[in-house]
Design a protein around this nucleic acid. Structure first.
Length: 716
DNA sequence: AGCACGCCGACT
DNA sequence: GTCGGCGTGCTC
């Protein structure tokens, strides 16, 4: 009896295609195998997602599998169905998610070699070839080359089509072979059951909190929790839960937003649990990543910890999924495959029937709301910091730094103590303007005003990073350009240097000028007390392990409130809270918050460290303005090389949405911000609906068949 | 995503 | 008259 395989290619096709399995592959092919299949005119690699004994449709003419790669499949049935769920949840092709689920270096690839046939050689000598054919033949006279080499060498369009035509005319031969990538590993044997040390202590509050979760852990069913508390207390609970999970021979998955957060946590895990840890993040080399994978596949890992790629960790018996720093923005980043890590982690827990624990000191409003409503909120107690916090109402624009803050700095400097100042605006000024004709230098790719970076003498577009030499005279009327009243961190540092001429002031920002070595030098210098005042943007807030100081100032956290974003109040709250991390514990420590909006609930409650207070006020605004969690929003982006195709895709989408559901509010299409990203035009459409189900259904049907690059973000 | 097919403008 | 643009639809 013939065997058939359902295959998903890593393309924007999310339906499997069925191929016949030739007898020679029958024994090797498995669900999860990677195979080489003919699709249209090409040979591509795909994942086997199912095996069957009958055709899906008897009338269908099926092609057959052209090759099977590794013997042991890289993808387990569990990950296969998880990827399918993600694909539905985020409107992404199944095959592309599968591709992302496996380390790229473990994915076998095909290699093609093009050589000239005797017939081709003859044609070249007789000059019966077309110009483009001859160009190819000339390259191949002496030796065979890969198609990639030819593409680069010829520098013309449609080389692959040309090669295919020449292959059909038997002028060239294209041999496709499988490139083996699997390596032999001879690592240490699996570790035995770990000895659990008993030096572990939890106070009554934490014991109670963990108890609730441990009860559910035994039941083996999906169950969410949200832990609100300081990092230290959360960590203690996590470790306790992981320990419990492992002692029941389960496995745990820990997600963190950024690599910088990992070292401390990894150390703790290692010292308490032994070396049963697999670590996955984007900073690993291919080889390191492969070793971590081997660890998991061979069941030598009890815990996998890492950033978003760890979502696909091949852990059997997964019982616990932890997502730390639930509030962190990098979980919703658009890099790579555009999906929300929070939701993806939740789906993994659902699929595995595992306990899902999210933790934060200041969770997203949506998450806190649903946890409280659903009765799965675990509050570990309020964050308190003994420091004195001063709110400086600062609206005068003559100086950048409030005299009261400068005075505090002066005192600090006299004691020989360093200070940190946080201000989240890079460069010297976010734009310049001509005082006579109001001309503003703009980026010709994004149409945003160019930021002036005085130190480097450059104009930099903060949207596309395009950099040009700064020209300080107006190209239209020749006047000297002036700084707009939107100073950046460089201007702040300049003012401090004038105020404290004998002090060492340094800037820490994610600037092109501030290279990695320079950044490390600054941090080292600060540790050695060679820097008196460190002025930093949010790039500094992501830095861990700096020696805490007695004085921290934060300038204008209310700036984020200007963003057209329903979460901006929460962002302001987080920004202020991030300043506390640099402050030494103790009554003598001081935090200055210089703001023109001291009465805003986000600033005020953050100053007091009262998340619940912030939440109560914020949730009222959300209800009032009908924002998530009281409504469901979708942001849909269409991107294409040509503005016209992105716009027409967006228009087509909007027309379909309008036709399908009157109850859905449509905003747009409008230009996304930035309007161009990596050379692609971006058009945005926002939708708002009363119910998530309706929104999902309409999105699914409206996006069908739309070709241009699309990404969808759903809130909550 | 590629690639073919198919329908309208400027040119050897 | 053709070459070539890109809109639309299919790929087991």
């Amino acid at each position: 009896m013939t065997l058939y395989a359902d295959v998903v290619p890593p393309l924007p096709i999310d339906r499997p295609y069925t191929y016949t399995v030739p007898p020679e592959y029958r024994d090797r092919i498995q669900v999860g195998s990677r195979v080489l299949v003919p699709l249209g005119q090409r040979l591509i690699t795909g994942f086997v997602v199912g095996l069957r004994k009958r055709k899906p449709d008897a009338a269908l003419e099926l092609k057959s599998i052209a090759g099977v790669f590794e013997t042991a499949p890289l993808i387990s049935p569990a990950i296969l169905s998880y990827a399918a769920k993600l694909s539905r949840a985020f409107f992404l092709p199944w095959g592309e998610i599968l591709q992302a689920a496996v380390p790229p270096s473990l994915l076998p690839r095909t290699r093609a070699i093009v050589s000239l046939t005797p017939k081709g050689k003859e044609a070249l000598e007789k000059s019966t070839l077309s110009d483009e054919e001859r160009a190819v033949a000339d390259q191949l006279v002496n030796r065979a080359h890969s198609p990639l080499f030819l593409k680069r060498k010829l520098r013309t369009k449609g080389v692959s089509a040309l090669l295919d035509r020449m292959e059909r005319k038997e002028l060239v031969r294209i041999e496709r072979e499988l490139k083996r990538t699997s390596r032999k590993t001879n690592e240490a044997p699996p570790v035995g059951p770990t000895q659990l040390e008993l030096d572990f202590s939890l106070d009554e509050n934490l014991r109670l909190a963990s108890g609730t979760i441990i009860e559910v852990l035994a039941k083996r069913e999906f169950s969410p929790f949200l832990i609100v508390g300081s990092p230290g207390r959360r960590e203690a609970v996590y470790l306790h839960l992981i320990r419990q999970t492992i002692s029941r021979s389960g496995r745990a998955l820990v997600l963190v937003p950024e690599i910088s957060r990992m070292p401390a946590l990894i150390e703790k895990c290692k010292s308490q649990l032994g070396d049963i840890l697999a670590v996955l993040h984007s900073g690993l080399t291919d080889r390191q990543r492969e070793l971590e994978w081997q660890k998991m596949i061979e069941s030598r890992a009890g815990v996998a910890i890492g950033t978003r790629s760890v979502l696909f960790a091949p852990l059997p018996e997964l019982r616990l999924v932890i997502l730390d720093e639930e509030h962190d923005e990098s979980y919703s980043q658009q890099e790579g495959l555009p999906f929300d890590v929070r939701k993806a982690a939740r789906i993994r827990a659902e699929e595995e029937k595992a306990v899902f624990v999210q933790g934060s000191a200041a969770p997203t409003v949506e998450s806190y709301h649903s946890a409280r409503k659903g009765g799965f909120l675990i509050d570990l107690g309020r964050e308190t910091h003994p420091a004195r916090v001063r709110l400086l109402d600062f609206r005068c624009a003559r100086e950048l730094v409030d005299p009261r803050l400068k005075k505090a700095m002066e005192e600090q400097l006299r004691k020989g103590e360093p200070a940190i100042l946080l201000y989240n605006r890079r460069g010297y000024a976010s734009s310049l303007v001509c005082p006579r004709c109001a001309h503003v230098p703009r980026c010709d790719r994004c149409d945003l005003s160019l930021a002036y970076h005085k130190r480097e003498g450059k104009f930099i577009c903060h949207a596309c990073r395009r950099t040009v030499a700064a020209v300080l005279t107006c190209p239209r009327c020749g006047s000297h350009l002036t700084v707009r009243p939107t100073a950046g961190i460089e201007a702040v540092a300049e003012e401090l240097k004038v105020a404290f001429p004998r002090s060492r002031v340094e800037i820490f920002a994610a600037d092109e000028a501030t290279r990695k070595e320079k950044k490390e030098a600054i941090l080292k210098g600060f540790e050695r007390k060679e820097i008196d005042i460190l002025v930093g943007t949010r790039a500094l807030s992501h830095q861990y392990g700096l020696p805490p100081v007695g004085l921290v100032g934060i300038l204008h956290p209310e700036m984020v409130l200007q963003l057209a974003d329903f979460r901006s109040a929460h962002k302001a709250y987080l920004l202020v809270r991030s300043a506390f991390r640099f402050l030494r514990e103790g009554k003598a420590s001081e935090l200055y918050i210089q703001t023109s909006d001291p009465d805003h609930h986000s600033i005020r409650e953050a100053a007091r460290g009262d998340y619940t207070g912030f939440f109560e006020k914020e949730i009222r605004y959300r209800r009032l303005l009908d924002y998530p969690p009281f409504s469901f929003l979708a942001e849909v982006f269409f991107s294409a090389e040509k503005a016209r195709s992105a716009a027409s895709a967006a228009r087509r989408f909007v027309a379909r949405v309008r036709a399908l559901a009157k109850s859905i509010q449509v905003y747009g299409p409008s230009l996304a911000s930035p309007a161009r990203k990596r050379g692609l035009f971006r058009v945005q459409v926002n939708l708002k609906a009363r119910r998530a189900g309706i929104l999902n259904g309409v999105l699914r049907r409206s996006l069908e068949g739309i070709r241009s690059g699309k990404s969808v973000f759903l809130y909550p």
